[in-house]
Amino acid sequence: MKKEIRIGVIGAGRMGRIHTQNLLKMQEVEVKAIADPRVEDTKKWASSFEITDIRSEWRSVLDDPEIDAVVVTAPTKFHFEIIKAAATKGKHIFTEKPLSHDLESTKELLHFLEGKNVKIQVGFNRRFDHNYRKVKDLIVSDEIGEIHIIKTTTRDPDLPDIEFVKNSGGIFFDFFIHDFDYIRFIANSEVEEVYAGGSVLWDPKMQEAGDYDTAFVSLKMKSGALGIINASRKAIYGYDQRVEVFGSKGNILTSNDRETNVEVKTKDGIVIDKPLQDFQHRYIDSFLEELHDFVKCIIEDKMPSAKPKDGYEAILIAEAAKISTQFNKPVFIDNLR
């Protein structure tokens, strides 16, 4: 049986492999080719899934007329070139966040993509997470009325490799970007003003890399709602991911997902499981859901949830946050457009 959609994966790193395995679960999808300069490694990994078409050069994937769509999981600095080329060749595009590596290239990319007749989705997977999606649904059904305060907590289980940090674009581009998108997604309002700050409390190497390991971003929305994000690159007890939305009719609070719900009670106290250890475990379902939605958008000719415009807006907020820390003052988003 011929599959409805044939997909090429560009970049077989950590995310590329997660997405590939999820694509293989979809009956309507065939993973036609994978491009990665580490051909031998990739071949070895892909052989167990019977994917044989492994190429070193991503452009050749775009030249393949049988391929309908590409999943872009190459390093962020290549996104701009790959996405432009893919759109030109008429391929639908699912790209990992961030859309591009800086504000200027993102802006240019956004203009370039205007009017291109392909589906483009940005990998803001939290929109598809079971908890975070329910929060959105409750807001849409007006369960808590007008939104007044949005608080998100986002803490990684451990510091990343310092080399990763140097190439990450900084904590606001790499880490907060999900929170920026999610807050826009649920607030029904654009961000007006951004104030951000950070500290280095875990490892002085972070400072040498020009980054923070502990930071906050305060957002003032056009609606008057206030947003506040707190983040740490390391939480000793695991991956801490929570959101709270306070509105005129009530409050919504999520907790961390845990491996089990077993409580152990002893003379010292009551112990429960730590949060799931990292993003691969915590967001495993959302990665499948977001990609499946992308495939459905192609088949049913629908608009994806997280569009290039959303990718651009998130980067705009990240840029504002970065500038805010440099000058230690709030930044009006519209001044950066």
Binding site: S199, V200, L201, L226, I228, G250
Partner: peptide
Amino acid sequence: TAISILKFKNGATCIIDNSRKAVYGYD
């Protein structure tokens, strides 16, 4: 409705969120 962010000398950050009215009670 207000948010206050305090930066302490030791590098710690405190985030306070206030509302004069939470329909579900004193939070």
